[in-house]
Design a protein around this nucleic acid. Structure first.
Length: 419
RNA sequence: GUGAGUGUAGCUCAAUGGUCAGAGCACUGGACUGUGGCUCCAGGGGUUGUGGGUUCGAGUCCCAUCACUCACCCCA
């Protein structure tokens, strides 16, 4: 094959595309009742937008970004995630002047240069939301509740909600030091990856799956125990609200987000029915990012849903809805074909789904096509029918046929639909 | 970036190193000169991912390369 899609990217084609439309439609409908407005931001941004927000030492920035110079030599990056561009747009258009909270959603492709595997692609689709201007844990609860609502509405079941608080700029550094102190004596016995994490992101060590590391970190300090009063209150209230809203969740003290900008609340939704890439949505609070981007101090929280993973969970049980044409015109001969085409065109302008056969096809193959398409009726129109002025109307379900005056076809079907 | 596995028809897969590479599904046609689903029959469709090598002989063995898959790192 001469041309193929690039590694890690994929075409979405019928009928599967319908599932994707379902996922987008449901999320839009649910977001709407929570007051979220759509925001469309470019898929390319200045590279430094991601350097500053995601963190220069994260893997995303270090090795996963599609970065290239444009024709004027500026460094451009295909967005690896949606929060940074939304924050940039939020500040650029002074959206903080609106009454808080300012609530937005977006959906579209993201790009990361990674080795593809199950549930991971180089171009992947996220549906995300961001809410600005309120640091009340009620907003955290609302947004997590909205996420649950969205996923359930899409038809997902058996999801697990995990929750954590990773503190703020007051309490996290203290925890980080305490953790490093605890681990420093055991450093040489940790796996090579964790030895690297020790300097880079020691919190990640708590997430390591190597059995030796799991044993070594027994009794390690937990971030939850280091929260300052503000963070602790926030987290406690959030849990209360979630209980009030009947959202079942598990506190996972080891839930660490990969991006630098998160503060306080972090959460993740996982499923047991995918492979290693089992997170279907994740998010958290980022109270400092807007200010760091040059905007006014603005607390914020958001999440993103991984559309590929949702699609792969839903695809086996999804029932495709696409309905067939009301009429299939099976014609024989040029004159009949022209007559049918004209009637079909007229009915289509009235909003009816009509298909016509083409002259190269035998009647048999036209009938077959009508059947495959799921047509309700087939109108058979040949030279005999033109002569008598009456076409054959075949009900595809009952196989019953009757004559119908050619002049009356249009009116007949328009009335049928109205009635 | 690391590791393992797999590349044969549109799809799912066969073929102890030995004729000119097969089957099911799908597609087209016929049985039914102008009537769909079921059945039967026939037909079209392949540079066996690509390039080298070993051999009298390679889909099969070896090397390289590309792609796909899964996992690691990391992450939705």
């Amino acid at each position: 094959m001469k041309y193929k899609a690039l590694k890690g990217v994929q075409d979405l084609i019928p009928p599967e595309i319908e599932l994707w439309q379902h996922i987008e439609d449901v999320s839009k409908a649910v977001f709407k009742v929570y007051g979220y407005k759509e925001l469309r931001v470019p898929i390319i941004e200045s590279t430094d937008i991601f350097l500053r927000s995601i963190g220069e030492t994260t893997d995303i920035v270090e090795k996963e970004m599609y970065t290239f110079p444009d024709k004027a030599g500026r460094s451009i990056t295909l967005r690896p995630e949606g929060t940074a561009p939304v924050v940039r747009a939020f500040i650029e258009h002074n959206l903080f002047n609106l009454n808080p909270p300012q609530k937005f959603y977006y959906h579209g492709p993201m790009f990361r240069y990674e080795r593809p595997q199950a549930g991971r692609f180089r171009q992947f689709y996220q549906i995300g939301v961001e809410a600005f201007g309120i640091d009340d844990p009620k907003l955290d609860a609302e947004i997590i509740c909205m996420l649950r609502h969205t996923l359930e509405e899409m038809g997902l079941t058996g999801l697990e909600f995990e929750l954590n608080s990773i503190g703020c700029s007051n309490c996290r550094p203290k925890y980080r030091e305490s953790l490093k102190e605890f681990l420093s004596g055991r450093l040489v016995r940790l796996c090579p990856d964790c030895q690297r994490r020790f300097e880079l992101n020691p919190l990640r060590i708590m997430d390591c799956k190597v059995t030796g590391c799991i044993e070594l970190r027994q009794g390690a300090p937990r971030v939850i125990d280091f929260l300052c009063e503000d963070c602790r209150n926030h987290f406690d209230k959030l849990k209360d609200y979630l209980q009030l809203l009947n959202v079942s969740f598990a506190v996972n003290p080891d839930l660490v987000r990969g991006l630098d900008y998160y503060t306080k609340t972090t959460f993740e939704v996982t499923t047991t029915s995918l492979g290693a890439q089992k997170a279907v949505a994740a998010g958290g609070r980022y109270d400092r990012l807007v200010e760091e981007f040059g905007g006014p101090p603005t607390p914020a929280i958001g999440f993103a849903i991984g559309a590929e993973r949702i699609a792969s969970l839903l695809k086996d049980n999804y029932v495709y809805q696409s309905s067939g044409p009301v009429i299939f015109f099976a014609t024989l001969g040029g004159e009949a074909s022209a007559t049918a085409l004209k009637i079909a065109d007229s009915l289509r302008t009235k909003g009816l789904y009509i298909e016509v056969g083409y002259d190269v096809m035998s009647l048999k193959s036209q009938m077959k096509r009508a059947d495959r398409l799921g047509a309700l009726y087939t109108v058979i129109l040949g030279e005999d029918e033109l002569k008598s002025g009456k076409a054959i109307l075949r009900d595809m379900q009952t196989k019953k046929q009757s004559d119908i005056p050619i002049d009356a076809i249009e009116e007949n079907f328009l009335n049928r639909i109205v009635a």
